[in-house]
């Protein structure tokens, strides 16, 4: 097996710019978790089907397990660690999940939150329940049965309107 040289990647994650030399084959999810120690992004299938590893890449959700780290050179990424205030105070979306039992084991939650953020950024009034269900249909949750996640996202939209 031939050795391939590491490549330099410059990427902004949650507002901070990192420069790292990485193996070209390293998945973005592993890069975030291992090289940047941002373990909030989880992997569950490493196959692109469950959406648990969803992050925002230049504002759009992507499966971080399906990208190589070298592909995000120059890009801006947001992960679950970007949501709460520096003192740990939950943002409105996170608080809505807490208030409405939108999580149980919490493992899909980072992917679910980033997907919900993308949806609410585009649909600040929350849209219909069917639209919410469609928006999160690419993220699998095995605990909740989704109903309280839908309620959480709706509540976050309502909280946003009140603010």
């Amino acid at each position: 097996m031939s050795t391939i040289e590491n490549q330099l990647v410059t990427v902004t994650v949650n507002g901070r710019t990192y420069e790292r030399a990485v193996e070209p084959r390293k998945a973005l999810s592993d890069f975030l978790r291992e090289d940047l120690e941002l373990t909030g992004t989880h992997v569950a299938c490493e196959h692109g089907f469950c959406g648990v590893c969803n992050i925002l890449l230049d504002g759009q959700t992507v499966r971080s397990c399906l990208l190589f780290a070298v592909q995000v050179d120059g890009a801006s990424i947001e992960t679950v660690e970007s949501l709460a205030a520096p003192d740990g105070t939950l943002n409105a979306l996170q608080q809505a999940f807490n208030d409405n039992a939108g999580l149980q084991c919490g493992y899909c939650t980072p992917g679910m939150l980033m997907t919900a953020k993308e949806y609410l950024d585009a649909n600040p009034d929350g849209g219909t329940d069917d639209q919410i269900r469609e928006a999160i249909s690419g993220v699998l949750c095995r605990c909740t049965g989704y109903q309280q996640i839908v309620e959480s996202i709706r509540a976050a939209a309502s909280a946003g309107k009140g603010a």
Binding site: G40, V43, T79, V80, L90, N98, A101
Partner: peptide
């Protein structure tokens, strides 16, 4: 009452085994 477990998981600070 709201679950007291939730905040750390919502912040991505769950510390699962692979973390």
């Amino acid at each position: 009452i709201n679950r007291v477990e939730d905040p750390r998981f919502l912040r991505g600070e769950g510390r699962y085994i692979d973390d």
